[in-house]
Lab assay of single mutants.
Amino acid sequence: METPSQRRATRSGAQASSTPLSPTRITRLQEKEDLQELNDRLAVYIDRVRSLETENAGLRLRITESEEVVSREVSGIKAAYEAELGDARKTLDSVAKERARLQLELSKVREEFKELKARNTKKEGDLIAAQARLKDLEALLNSKEAALSTALSEKRTLEGELHDLRGQVAKLEAALGEAKKQLQDEMLRRVDAENRLQTMKEELDFQKNIYSEELRETKRRHETRLVEIDNGKQREFESRLADALQELRAQHEDQVEQYKKELEKTYSAKLDNARQSAERNSNLVGAAHEELQQSRIRIDSLSAQLSQLQKQLAAKEAKLRDLEDSLARERDTSRRLLAEKEREMAEMRARMQQQLDEYQELLDIKLALDMEIHAYRKLLEGEEERLRLSPSPTSQRSRGRASSHSSQTQGGGSVTKKRKLESTESRSSFSQHARTSGRVAVEEVDEEGKFVRLRNKSNEDQSMGNWQIKRQNGDDPLLTYRFPPKFTLKAGQVVTIWAAGAGATHSPPTDL
């Protein structure tokens, strides 16, 4: 069977082979063929449309019947899901209200924590001031004790010197008594010597008188005998007598002179000795008097100093007792304040721990409710997609609110971060928990396990030699990294520990 286009092609070929045509004729024939082709295509399209309309009418009838069946089946399910969705919305509203209440309680707890922290800071300042005052008082007490020990040692030294001076005074008084006794003995010996000298002088005078009498008696006897002796021998006898008398007189005078000289010499020697002894004793007595006077003056001065030191010692002891009493009071006050502060800190920690436990429990309940609501929403969306139902505006708002919801909680030295990733086909969620104590904190952990970043959050360098970082993902083997023995993380510095297959460059001390 030939198509209209094939017939047109045969006809035009025959005409062209029979007679030659002009260009205008050819153009018109071409346009006519195009119109015929378009008409044929339109006829085919109309036939196809008619057949499709016939099929569409049958399909519409089948769809109508199916919609009636589906509407009867879905009406009950939709009512049940609407009821469950209403319950879920009520639960979500109650959870939102509970969350708002918990946020209010958390803000209240934070305000109480700030207030307690301020009070604690003030108490710590008072405690530091009390400890500083206690240290000052202890230093003052130590200085006073040192001064007291010095004063006591000086007192003992002065008492020793006073005892020595008293012994010296006793010795000097004994020496003075001995000197006085020697002086009295010398004076007695001097008086005795003077008496003996006077006696010797009297004896000498008496001997002179006796010698004169004997001489006169001898002259008288000789004169008497001379009268009786011969005149011839008188001159010879007289001359001999005169010579004998002269010789006797000379001898007697020599003896008297020698005895006189010896007596005067002895007397002068004894007198000089007595005078020297008297002068020496008088000098000793003067020196003893002077030394005794000086000793008395020094004793008086030392007694005055001793009394002054005793007064100072009594004042120091009184002040020391006052300082000890004040120190005891300060210690009791400090202990009482410290006990009160520790009790308040313990109560505050217990209260904060209780509130944190309650908040953690409520947060766990909220997370469980969020997971249940998310599961209900997934089931509802799956059924709506299976039944090709359009979601209600309320469910769209709930989905938008659930997809944009995120929370971040800080308290008790722990930080909890939650992130949620969404897509049109599926939804997944993960959470990161970080707890830090000390100078070094974990700043970031790569989700794909490529690196771990640490930061020194203090103002001092931290030695991290032979420290270890351990990481384990589920049931995978435990991964451990040990820092070099001499590694030190500077204040405020960040160090990144890269995985072996991350392709990073080893560049200490920032990249390991």
Results as ranks from 00 to 15, higher is better:
Glu178His: 03
Ala179Lys: 12
Lys180Ile: 01
Lys180Cys: 08
Lys180Glu: 01
Lys180Ala: 08
Lys181Trp: 08
Lys181Leu: 13
Gln184Arg: 06
Gln184Ile: 09
Gln184Phe: 10
Glu186His: 02
Glu186Cys: 09
Glu186Tyr: 12
Glu186Val: 07
Glu186Ser: 13
Met187Ile: 11
Met187Pro: 01
Met187Trp: 08
Leu188Val: 03
Leu188Tyr: 01
Arg189Pro: 02
Arg190Leu: 07
Arg190Trp: 01
Arg190Met: 09
Val191Met: 06
Val191His: 10
Asp192His: 14
Asp192Gly: 02
Asp192Arg: 02
Asp192Asn: 00
Asp192Cys: 09
Asp192Ser: 00
Glu194Cys: 11
Glu194Phe: 15
Asn195His: 06
Asn195Leu: 06
Arg196Trp: 01
Leu197Lys: 15
Leu197Asn: 08
Gln198Trp: 01
Met200Tyr: 09
Met200Val: 09
Lys201Val: 14
Lys201Phe: 00
Lys201Ala: 05
Lys201Gln: 06
Lys201Pro: 00
Lys201Arg: 15
Glu202Ala: 00
Glu203Trp: 00
Leu204Phe: 13
Leu204Ile: 13
Leu204Val: 13
Leu204Glu: 05
Leu204Ala: 00
Asp205Val: 04
Phe206Thr: 01
Phe206Gln: 04
Phe206Leu: 02
Phe206Met: 04
Gln207Asn: 09
Gln207Ala: 15
Gln207Tyr: 05
Lys208Ser: 05
Asn209Thr: 04
Ile210Val: 13
Ile210Gln: 04
Tyr211Arg: 12
Tyr211Glu: 06
Ser212Asn: 04
Glu213Met: 00
Glu214Tyr: 06
Glu214Phe: 03
Glu214Arg: 01
Leu215Cys: 03
Leu215Glu: 04
Arg216Asp: 00
Arg216Ala: 04
Arg216Glu: 04
Arg216Ser: 13
Arg216Leu: 10
Glu217Lys: 14
Glu217Val: 13
Glu217Pro: 09
Glu217Trp: 05
Thr218Pro: 10
Thr218Glu: 12
Lys219Ile: 10
Arg220Pro: 11
Arg220Ser: 04
Arg221Cys: 08
Arg221Glu: 06
His222Leu: 09
His222Phe: 00
Glu223Pro: 12
Thr224Lys: 07
Arg225Asn: 00
Leu226Ala: 08
Leu226Pro: 08
Leu226Phe: 06
Val227Gln: 14
Val227Arg: 14
Val227Asp: 12
Val227Trp: 12
Val227Ala: 11
Val227Cys: 07
Glu228Ser: 03
Ile229Cys: 04
Ile229Gln: 02
Asp230Phe: 12
Asp230Val: 05
Asp230Glu: 03
Asp230Lys: 14
Asp230Ser: 11
Asp230Thr: 07
Gly232Asp: 03
Gly232Trp: 11
Gly232Met: 05
Lys233Gly: 11
Gln234Lys: 12
Gln234Asp: 12
Arg235Asp: 05
Arg235Tyr: 14
Phe237Glu: 05
Phe237Lys: 04
Phe237Ile: 15
Phe237Cys: 06
Glu238Thr: 04
Glu238Phe: 10
Glu238Ile: 10
Glu238Tyr: 04
Ser239Leu: 08
Arg240Trp: 07
Arg240Glu: 13
Leu241Trp: 00
Leu241Lys: 11
Leu241Thr: 04
Leu241Ile: 09
Leu241Val: 09
Leu241Ser: 02
Ala242Ile: 01
Ala242Tyr: 05
Ala242Val: 03
Ala242Lys: 10
Ala244Thr: 06
Leu245Gly: 06
Gln246Ala: 10
Gln246Lys: 15
Gln246Glu: 00
Leu248Phe: 04
Ala250Tyr: 14
Ala250Val: 11
Ala250Gln: 12
Ala250Glu: 09
Gln251Asn: 11
Gln251Ala: 08
Gln251Asp: 11
His252Pro: 06
His252Asn: 09
Glu253Gln: 02
Glu253Val: 14
Gln255Leu: 09
Gln255Ala: 07
Val256Tyr: 07
Glu257Trp: 12
Glu257Leu: 09
Gln258Tyr: 07
Gln258Ala: 15
Gln258Ser: 15
Tyr259Ser: 02
Tyr259Thr: 00
Tyr259His: 04
Lys260Trp: 03
Lys260Gln: 13
Lys260Val: 10
Lys261Tyr: 09
Lys261Phe: 13
Lys261Pro: 02
Lys261Trp: 01
Glu262Ile: 00
Glu262Pro: 01
Leu263Met: 12
Leu263Tyr: 08
Leu263His: 02
Glu264Gln: 13
Glu264Ser: 06
Lys265Cys: 13
Lys265Arg: 15
Thr266Ser: 11
Thr266Arg: 06
Thr266Trp: 08
Tyr267His: 02
Tyr267Leu: 02
Tyr267Gln: 05
Ser268Phe: 07
Ala269Met: 15
Ala269Trp: 02
Ala269Gln: 14
Lys270Pro: 00
Leu271Gln: 04
Leu271Ser: 01
Leu271Pro: 02
Leu271Tyr: 07
Asn273Asp: 13
Asn273Phe: 04
